[in-house]
């Protein structure tokens, strides 16, 4: 069964079209990540799915039922917000229990589900505290707990890690992945961070300006981007784009080569000077100004002794490079 089906969903605020004909399915148990730059409409799409905004056109189906006219609480979804959005006047336990109380579940069921979530998220020591007495990471876990107790058909996460510091972000990311495995629930996860998208997703949906650019598994998108935007958005450091390429391109076209697919090689087709070196220990990033006055990044695995100012020659395999036409669409070469 499909957990979610969107058909021709559009959303306008006044004259501004924020979402344009979104068609999408989320299979049962799938972890889908919506990724795209800030302001591209990811949160709006999530809010339309949740029922917090009405779709201007199109249908939203959750678990096979059209829910366009169903209020958020009855859609069988749970949502985790970037700002945690915990109820300030309630304890951790009551924050989690509130939705079940609203559904008039019996006390024993509430008790059981809350304590299960508390255990799963390791919040045992904090159940009687107020949100204001918790750290950012703990608050986010409570927010996740509040979603778990509802036992929803579909989890919605809106940039849940953006307010956490780097170390905590990595830990929480892993916890969310584990949560997905344990609950085997359908999840939609919104982020602008391509690392989160690549590491968490079964399926990535790349959005730009309210349109779906491409849908696919992380590796499909990495190996086979449909256009220049997707190619540049996924992968870190980002793909190099060269207008003055050493191969035959369609008129006005662009060559794309990922930094990790370039190597230093005598007699290579691209010549340039090193302008900056980043030594990360595990790998080394060289920033290079080519002889054609274009900038590119090279990622070398391991440590490398190339110094700033050195002249280098770079080579790549045509099989790992991409060509894009003037409309930024992928073309064969």
């Amino acid at each position: 069964m499909t957990a979610l089906t969107l058909t021709d969903v559009c959303k306008s605020f006044g004259a501004v079209d924020v979402l344009k004909e979104i068609n999408l399915t989320v299979e049962d148990g799938e972890f889908v990540v919506f990724v795209g730059p800030s302001g591209c409409g990811k949160s709006t799409l999530l809010r339309v799915i949740a029922g917090l905004e009405d779709a201007t056109r199109g249908t939203v189906e959750i678990g096979g039922d059209v829910v366009n006219n169903t209020p958020p609480a009855k859609r069988g979804i749970a949502m985790v917000f970037q700002s945690y959005a915990l109820y300030p006047h309630l304890s951790v336990r009551d924050n989690m229990a509130l939705s079940l109380k609203q559904e008039k579940q019996p006390k024993s069921v509430i008790e059981e589900r809350v304590s299960k979530a508390v255990q799963m998220l390791d919040l045992g020591a904090y159940v009687d505290r107020r949100p204001s007495d918790l750290s950012g990471g703990q608050r986010q876990r409570v927010a996740i707990g509040r979603a778990i107790v509802r036992d929803p058909k579909l989890f919605l996460f809106d940039e849940p890690l953006s307010n956490l510091d780097a170390a905590l972000r990595m830990n929480t990311r892993i916890e969310i992945a584990e949560l997905h495995r344990t609950l085997s629930a359908s999840m939609i996860y919104v982020t602008h961070d391509q690392t989160e998208a690549m590491t968490l997703a079964d399926k990535i949906v790349v959005l730009r300006d309210g349109r779906v650019e491409q849908v696919g598994s992380p590796m499909e998108l990495y190996n086979n981007p449909a256009n220049k935007f997707v190619a540049g958005f996924l992968g870190s450091p980002a793909m190099n784009f060269l207008q003055k390429a050493p191969i035959d391109l369609p008129q006005g076209g662009t060559l794309g080569v990922r930094p990790e697919h370039l190597r230093l090689e005598k007699g290579g087709r691209i010549k340039g000077t090193v302008t900056h070196v980043e030594r990360l220990g595990g790998d080394t990033n060289l920033l290079i100004a080519t002889s054609q006055k274009e900038e590119m990044t090279v990622r070398l695995f391991g440590q490398d002794s190339t110094a700033v100012g050195a002249s280098v020659e770079l080579e790549f395999d045509n099989s790992s490079a991409f060509a894009f036409d003037t409309n930024e669409q992928r073309v064969a070469f």
Partner: peptide
Amino acid sequence: DLKNAGRIDGL
């Protein structure tokens, strides 16, 4: 977000 969380929880 806080108001929306309330709506999703059925307040």
